[in-house]
Simulated assay, not measured.
Amino acid sequence: MSTTLPKVNLDEPRFDQSTYEGRAKHFFITTNPLNLFATSSQLEDAKSVVEKYRKGEPLPGYNIDDVWKAKHLYDSAFHPDTKEKMFILGRMSAQVPCNMTITGCMMTFYKTTPAVLFWQWINQSFNAIVNYTNRSGDSPIPLKQLGLSYVLATGGAVTTALTLNSLVKKFPPLIGRFVPFAAVAAANCINIPCMRSREILNGIPVFDENGNRLGESKTAAKSAITQVVISRVFMATPGMMIPPFIMNVLEKKHWLKTRPYLNAPVQVGIIGIFLVFATPLCCALFPQKSSIATNKLEEDLQKKIKSSPNPPERVFFNKGL
């Protein structure tokens, strides 16, 4: 290790992940849209700094804060398993700008069947890109599974939106503005479990607090997927539940009535403000390294763990995003 820099573990986040504040700080950095503006040369430089630090090579002119900045930029663009540069729309830093645009259009153009079909399709296409880009390098998502999840989620979202649109016609116009949120929530409840169905069938690795692998658990997989679904739904809630009230007021104002072409841009901007905060804050709801009591695992896995020396009372697993 370089004598000029302290030794830190770059494989773990910089902030304490056992606290909500620490997790929120981590995800504010991870989802920062400004990372999208980094050039290829800047990304390669960040990669070089991280690799040199890990090898203990000298980094003249760098302090530990510079190393962390390089690590955060590196993490924003390179896959953690394959080390390959990720497709730009699938990166976590693209979540806010892409979601605010898609969500704003879904909530602006929600009254006609063609518009519902188009924007729900766009939304699920983006979700498929994100899921594929962030797939596990050790256990990649088969294209057949990705396609099935895509079709089921799109079908569920469209069916929910069209059904609710037909039901809310008798209600005040404001009620209809919440239909896209119901469709998105339904799609998340379909898409994520389907995308991770192999984990439900085969289980996910569980570890003790020292990182020793203890086996695979289907119970832990179900817990992980439930946490991710809850986070995704909560993430969409502020930007899809509050703007309808704001837009309902603004659309009655003369300046927007005479400029209907501003409806979508205004709604996209409002949703963007909410998503800038909701995305990292909701990603941080549950620890990335989640845990479950050993006595809640499958009986055969419980027996295996309890038969080992000093069996842990809790086991840990990666919940995913």
Rank of each mutant, 00 (worst) to 15 (best):
K296E: 12
G269T: 13
D138W: 09
G147A: 15
T39P: 14
W68H: 04
G156C: 06
V206H: 01
V50S: 02
S125Y: 12
E12V: 15
S166D: 13
I200N: 02
W119A: 07
T154H: 01
N123C: 05
N99E: 14
V229N: 09
I192K: 00
K257P: 00
Y110K: 13
D81C: 06
M240I: 05
S197R: 06
Q302H: 05
V116K: 02
E216G: 06
F28E: 06
K170H: 13
P193A: 01
M240E: 11
M235N: 14
T279W: 00
V266H: 12
P58N: 05
V158W: 05
S291G: 10
P205F: 00
G272H: 04
V206A: 03
F234Y: 11
G269N: 05
K47P: 08
K222D: 01
E199P: 05
L89V: 14
K52E: 13
L5Y: 06
K47M: 03
G56D: 03
T294M: 08
I305G: 09
N202K: 13
S307V: 00
F316K: 02
M241G: 04
L256S: 04
M235V: 09
P244T: 09
K47S: 12
T30P: 02
P193R: 00
E313D: 14
T226V: 03
P142R: 01
G155C: 04
P60N: 05
Q302I: 01
P244H: 03
S290I: 00
I271T: 14
I192V: 10
V116S: 01
P60G: 02
C283A: 13
H72I: 04
V49H: 05
K289G: 08
K303D: 08
R196S: 07
G211R: 03
F27R: 08
F37C: 07
C194N: 09
S18T: 15
S307P: 07
E12S: 11
G215E: 09
N202M: 05
N295D: 15
Q227H: 04
R213Y: 00
P311A: 06
F245G: 11
L321W: 05
Y110Q: 10
A153K: 07
A224N: 01
N188V: 08
P193Q: 02
